[in-house]
């Protein structure tokens, strides 16, 4: 019970894995599990970035478009430039978009939702213009595909990179002043300001991290698909990323959340996609179930509700009250 209280998302993750394993035994095959991890890592990078922005009290809807831009930039630029350069250009572009988002949110005090809806449209437009809305099959080197298909110590490379990013993020949030300040700014911006914290610097950092990690997701996608594409890539990912973070206990009000939670949230969503596929369930159902899980998660995280849910789980309903 203490575990459920402290890490509810871990408990849900394990229960779901067992349940899916019971329903579709092939789900627990090593090969399939590796596949789940691989798929979940892509969304995971985006969700991890979203986690920073949400903890800092912001919101970033431009992430899916950044994934798309990054994918076409890498595929397109690699035709003329060394891939290592094109990758750096794409990562830099994603980071810059994040910085722009942050500057508009802080310097001009625009609502994050408006700023990032605008950049979501603008960036998607740029990506489509650049690629002429057609997939770009670049002359990509074989090494790049290792990023998608390589295996080290039995783990797929994208997953290892994602876990590494999670580890670094955890350390950053826990052991650096800037990391702590993200929680402070998200928790109470006015109190943070009165404590002498540079609000703009902290917020811009979160958006920059989000832009950077989204372009990393774009890189991973190019490596897997061996092409870049602007129209369908990353569509709706912003919502999946928010869902993953929220399922993992990140508060959309800011100030609360963990990397571990976000990681589990991304795995839960990735696992469902895979299992529903194995079970031959209509993909529409997947959206419905994700929606339900999200609603339940958010309802139960608001502390009063969580207490009620936990009490109900223990079989003690609050009938007396």
């Amino acid at each position: 019970m203490a575990l459920l209280k402290k890490y509810p998302y871990v408990v849900v993750l394990v229960i779901m894995a067992i349940a899916f394993g019971a329903l579709a035994p092939s789900f627990l095959d090593a090969g399939n599990l590796a596949n789940v991890l691989k798929q979940a890592s892509l969304l995971g990078f985006v969700a991890l970035g979203m986690c920073f922005v949400l903890i800092g009290g912001g919101l970033d809807l431009s992430v899916g478009s950044v994934v798309a831009l990054s994918s076409v930039l890498i595929a397109g630029l690699s035709a003329t430039l060394p891939p290592i350069i094109s990758i750096h250009v794409a990562l830099l572009a994603g980071t810059l978009i994040g910085i722009f988002n942050g500057v508009f949110v802080t310097a001009f005090r625009f609502q994050p939702i408006i700023v990032t809806i605008s950049s979501m449209a603008i960036v998607r437009g740029i990506a489509m213009a650049y690629s002429d809305s057609r997939p770009i099959f670049g002359t990509l080197p074989d090494e790049l595909f290792l990023l998608a298909d390589g295996v080290i110590f039995g783990f797929p490379v994208p997953t290892l990179l994602f876990f590494l990013a999670c580890l670094l993020s955890t350390l950053f949030l826990r052991f650096t002043a800037l990391g702590r300040q993200i929680y402070q700014v998200g928790g109470n911006e006015e109190a943070a300001r009165l404590a002498g914290i540079n609000i703009a610097r902290v917020k811009i950092t979160t958006y920059a991290i989000s832009g950077f990690l989204s372009s990393v997701a774009g890189l991973m996608l190019v490596a897997r698909m061996q092409s870049g594409e602007a129209v369908r890539t990353g569509v709706g990912w912003e919502l999946d990323a928010i869902a993953a973070a929220a399922i993992g206990g990140v508060s959309l009000m800011g100030g609360i959340g963990t990397v571990l939670g976000t990681l589990c949230g991304a795995l839960i969503i990735g696992m469902m996609a895979n299992a529903f596929n194995l079970l031959g369930v209509n993909p529409y159902w997947q959206r419905i179930v994700i929606g339900l899980i999200l609603a339940i998660a958010v309802a139960s995280y608001s502390s009063g509700n969580l207490k009620r849910v936990l009490t109900a789980l223990r079989g003690k309903t609050l009938r007396k009250a």
Partner: peptide, 13 residues
């Protein structure tokens, strides 16, 4: 509550 403290954070922080 609204200006002095971050209510969601630990006392120490």
């Amino acid at each position: 509550k609204t200006q002095g403290l971050i209510l969601s954070m630990p006392i120490g922080h």
